[in-house]
Design a protein around this nucleic acid. Structure first.
Lengths: 112, 112
DNA sequence: ACAAACCATAACCATATGGTTATGGTTTCT
DNA sequence: AGAAACCATAACCATATGGTTATGGTTTGT
């Protein structure tokens, strides 16, 4: 009846990627690899604290990991955290379901 | 340098699906087909005006279409509007890119 | 004709969100 | 040692967001 809204992990991923600045930060990390907060601040066009807060949200969704090195913190994308979103698309995007299903089968055949 | 946040279509889709109630409504429509606002209200667990507003947001993202029939409005999912999200995943989900690319190639071969 | 059902919009409210500047803690550089 | 760089958190602010109740316009049922 009333829908189940208790899937926090999935919710965190969708919410994290709903903001364009956060998406841009994730894209930058996915494309150009590990970056410091300082470097990301230069890229993102907002203040350093804003970037830090965005990174916290991405961290909560496990979309980024961080590594402290001296005074700087290096962040990198963790793209496998997108799995919940991919799964959601597979289940509810009827248009894509066939393609996904066929992908599953084909990949099974290719790597045993 | 500073990221491009002007891709409104993509942004609408991500924002629309960021809310769990909205996702639930879309899921319900995708699974069980066309529904009236009244039926969706019974399902969603929030008031009828709340459902109407959610449907407006989903409409803006082109994730649903509506059809007036007398005093009731029937909504149905428009899953191909998920394309921007699928494309985004293909580009920036490095973990998934290989699989998507292979899918493209394989589908090319299968239906000419 | 009247009442009821269906839906959208208005008006309103509390909280979440995304941004800022200020501050303080480490770490590095001179 | 002292200054500067890097980052996270605090404090604050304006707006967006998601919900509610109230209302009004159509359409349907009696």
């Amino acid at each position: 009846m009333t829908p189940d809204k208790t899937n926090l992990g999935t919710n965190y991923v969708f919410r994290a990627l709903a903001d364009p600045t956060r998406r841009a930060i994730f894209e930058e990390l996915a494309r150009h690899g590990e970056q410091t907060v300082h470097a990301l601040t230069g890229y993102a066009g907002v203040s350093q604290p804003a970037v830090s807060k965005h990174l916290t949200v991405l961290k909560r969704a496990k979309l980024v990991r961080h590594r402290r090195e001296g005074r700087e913190t290096h962040y990198r994308a963790q793209p496998d955290a997108l799995t919940p979103m991919v799964d959601w698309l597979r289940h509810y995007g009827a248009f894509w379901r066939d393609r996904f299903d066929r992908l599953e089968v084909l990949l099974e055949r290719m790597d045993p």
